[in-house]
């Protein structure tokens, strides 16, 4: 049977789950509009979109940083991966400028319109093509969509354990193939361990992302970044882009304005105003 497979596939089958000493981390990032610069036009209630730059999803910068720190501690390499329109290549180069070693760019017409399911499928196919790895890092969610669902989706597609909302990587044993982390949950921090390879989504508190370096910028300038489409990742077309997306956006609108106007509390003295306000709040039964 093996003869029927391409060289790529053989390499892939033998590469997975091999014991390795050097780390290979893959970071999935997303190019998002820089919402700190998005301004809202109060007259028309639309986004003022001129000069809106795209940036690496801020949550993903923590994922990049954590991958780089593990690489520095254990040796190895970090591959950064994104799916997006042609202009998103800029974000991959910036990740390289931060210290990522390799970059893969998923960009093709057939990927357009992907929802979280189709995105997770596409990323997972690409990761299969990349080959052996120890950890996949994602940010906890994207700044534009805010869903936080792609990371779990990728883990599920690849059938590897997922550790979401990771606050701290406590221990990683590349030879024993295990990892222990702290996850940030509503009630506190859960300490949990699992086997490698695993997918981690990280929260903002995990680290302070580094700035890109000039050395990194010089590397980014010269790095050739492969662009993969559906064929390169051997994807089934019915699972890609708009067609592969179970969800469908039917309406986009600006949120309704809060009803009623603010009631300004005036008074002769600060005490009088505080008194009046306290009575209102007690009357509203919110205290």
């Amino acid at each position: 049977m093996l003869t029927a497979l391409g060289g790529d596939q053989i390499a892939r089958m033998s590469a997975v789950h091999v014991r390795r000493k050097n780390l290979h981390a893959i970071v999935c990032i997303k190019s998002v509009p820089d919402t700190t610069e998005v301004r809202f036009n109060p007259e028309t209630n639309t986004l003022m979109r001129d000069e809106v730059e795209s940036i690496i999803n801020p949550f993903d910068t923590y994922a990049i940083e954590e991958a780089l720190r593990l690489k520095e501690a254990h040796g190895g390499k970090v591959t950064v991966l994104t799916m997006g329109p042609p202009k998103a290549e800029k974000e991959l180069r910036e990740a390289v400028a931060m210290g990522c070693d390799e970059a893969i760019f998923l960009s093709a017409r057939e990927f357009a319109g992907s929802d979280t399911w189709a995105t997770a499928y596409t990323l997972a196919q690409a990761i299969r093509r990349i080959g052996a790895y120890d950890i996949i890092f994602c940010g906890k969610q994207a700044m534009d969509g805010d869903t936080g669902q792609v990371g779990p989706g990728v883990a599920n597609q690849l059938e590897i354990p997922q550790l979401t909302y990771v606050f701290k990587v406590r221990e990683i044993d590349l030879e024993g193939r295990s990892i222990q982390v702290e996850r940030l949950l509503e009630e506190g921090r859960e300490v949990v361990e699992t086997r490698l390879p695993a997918l981690l989504t990280v929260v903002k508190d995990i680290n302070q992302p580094r700035y890109p370096t000039f050395r990194g910028i010089r590397t980014a300038r010269r790095l050739e970044i492969p662009v993969w489409g559906a064929a390169e990742i051997e994807a089934a077309p019915q699972y890609l882009g708009l067609d592969g997306s179970p969800t469908q956006v039917i309406r986009v609108f600006t949120p309704p304005k809060r009803e009623g106007r603010v009631e300004m509390i005036d008074g002769d003295s600060v005490d009088a105003m505080a008194d009046a306000l306290a009575d209102r709040l007690l009357g509203d039964k919110v205290v």
Binding site: T35, Q248, V252, P255
Partner: peptide, 11 residues
């Protein structure tokens, strides 16, 4: 979405 700047209805 977009930090509450827009709302989307999805099916």
């Amino acid at each position: 979405a977009y930090g509450g700047n827009i709302m989307a209805t999805i099916l």
